[in-house]
């Protein structure tokens, strides 16, 4: 564990366990998330990284039979966001998510970005216009799409669609963004654009990213957590994890001996 996270915590995960029905997918995970930094989750397929990520916006609540134990305390308020008394909608209003495969709505580019604002009650055209432009600039997509905001989002390339999804998540000014292997469906050029974007975004938001690409974790993150079979094996600064891991399993994984 890094003794000093060097910045205030955005979230503190304490003894988090998660169950799909009777199957335990996460086992007693304790992991602090530093504000305005990028924390990467790495580990072999099926280790629970995505399950863990989806706890943060209560995505598991959409399907029956799922159960959380433990706490995810969100700061500055210090509330446990997986407590049953907390409305998942209130959590999702503050924590955005970008999925593995770009999933734009079958609507125009503009309406994709504006959707989060619309469901929060925004109706004023000029205000929406401004927010949409801001979000698209934030996702480094504005220059490519400013002349065709009202075209269908499906006409964009895969990389552009993923940046559109990032813009869509940014439009509502979330404090915290979850990325679930955001580059796994993208080519190397599109990947590097998204990675550059992550570095810019962390000035404003806290980022938690799942990746199965270790080079990517090394490039974009400040802290890295290595998970294996539903457990947190090691958490430290990215530099330590990749150069001097404490655990033999971590070392084997980051050096490519298994996974």
């Amino acid at each position: 564990m890094p003794t000093n996270l060097s910045s205030p915590l955005k979230a503190d995960v304490k003894h988090l366990s998660f169950f799909y029905g009777t199957v335990q997918a996460l086992k007693d995970i304790t992991l602090p998330i530093a504000g305005n930094h990028v924390t990467a989750l790495i580990g072999p397929s099926g280790c629970g990284k995505t399950t863990y990520l989806r706890c943060f916006n209560r995505m598991h609540d959409l399907y029956p039979g799922n159960r959380y134990e433990g706490q995810i305390v969100l700061y500055p308020e210090g509330i446990n966001i997986i407590d049953p008394s907390v409305d998942p909608l209130a959590v999702r209003m503050r924590i955005g998510m970008v999925f593995q495969k770009p999933n734009p709505f079958p609507k125009s580019i503009y309406e994709n970005v504006a959707y989060g604002l619309r469901i929060r009650g925004a109706t004023q055209r000029n205000q929406l216009d401004e927010k949409v432009e801001q979000a698209l600039r934030g996702a480094a997509l504005w220059n490519e799409v400013k002349d065709r905001l009202h075209h269908l989002a499906f006409h964009l390339s895969g990389g552009q669609q993923q940046r559109l999804c990032i813009a869509r998540a940014l439009a509502t000014d979330p404090e915290f963004l979850l990325f679930d292997e955001p580059c796994s469906a993208l080519d190397p050029t599109a990947t590097s654009r998204v990675e550059e974007l992550l570095a810019e975004l962390k000035q404003r938001v806290t980022i938690l990213i799942v990746t199965h690409n270790m080079q990517q974790a090394a490039r974009v993150s400040d802290f890295t957590a290595f998970m294996y079979q539903g457990q947190l094996v090691e958490f430290d600064t990215t530099k330590t994890i990749f150069t001097n891991p404490a655990n033999q399993l971590t070392e084997d994984y980051v050096t490519g001996r298994f996974g």
Binding site: M59, L62, G96, F99, F105, Y115, I119, R168
Partner: peptide, 9 residues
Amino acid sequence: LREAAFALG
């Protein structure tokens, strides 16, 4: 598609 909408709140 559903998850995209739910994730936005």
